[in-house]
Design a protein around this nucleic acid. Structure first.
Length: 101
DNA sequence: CGGGTGACTATAA
DNA sequence: TTTATAGCCACCC
């Protein structure tokens, strides 16, 4: 899929996010060694195959919200998966205590 | 090399 | 709190 090292790093970082916690795109980018490339992270996740084991749902934007269109299938799935891990999602916002920061 | 794009961000109004 | 704007980075024509 990605021959590009940045993508592999991103996947590695996302896979390292602990269960029950979330991280922002910007933070993932930084930890992946490509600070400032938050958009790259989003691009990377958007291209993930559906059956991927990557915990993509643990990645949210800097506002503590899900970056998928509200009401979309992906949005709904992300909320469900997060709540199943104990991450509180109220009014579309992830509880601050669930962030890694 | 130039221009458009996106699951982003920070800042200003 | 919401909307605009302007940077951001890598990718793809």
């Amino acid at each position: 899929m990605a021959q590009n090292p940045a993508y592999e790093m991103i996947w590695q970082v996302v896979a390292a996010i602990p269960v029950g916690k979330v991280a922002t795109y910007g933070q993932v980018a930084e930890l992946a060694g490509v600070p400032g490339a938050a958009r790259l992270v989003g691009r990377c996740l958007s291209q993930l195959p559906e059956g991927s084991r990557l915990p993509w749902f643990r990645v949210i934007n800097a506002s503590g919200r899900i970056s998928l269109p509200v009401g979309s299938e992906g949005y709904h799935r992300q909320v469900k998966l997060l709540q199943e891990e104990g991450v509180a999602v109220l009014n579309g916002k992830i509880r601050l205590a669930d962030f890694r920061w």
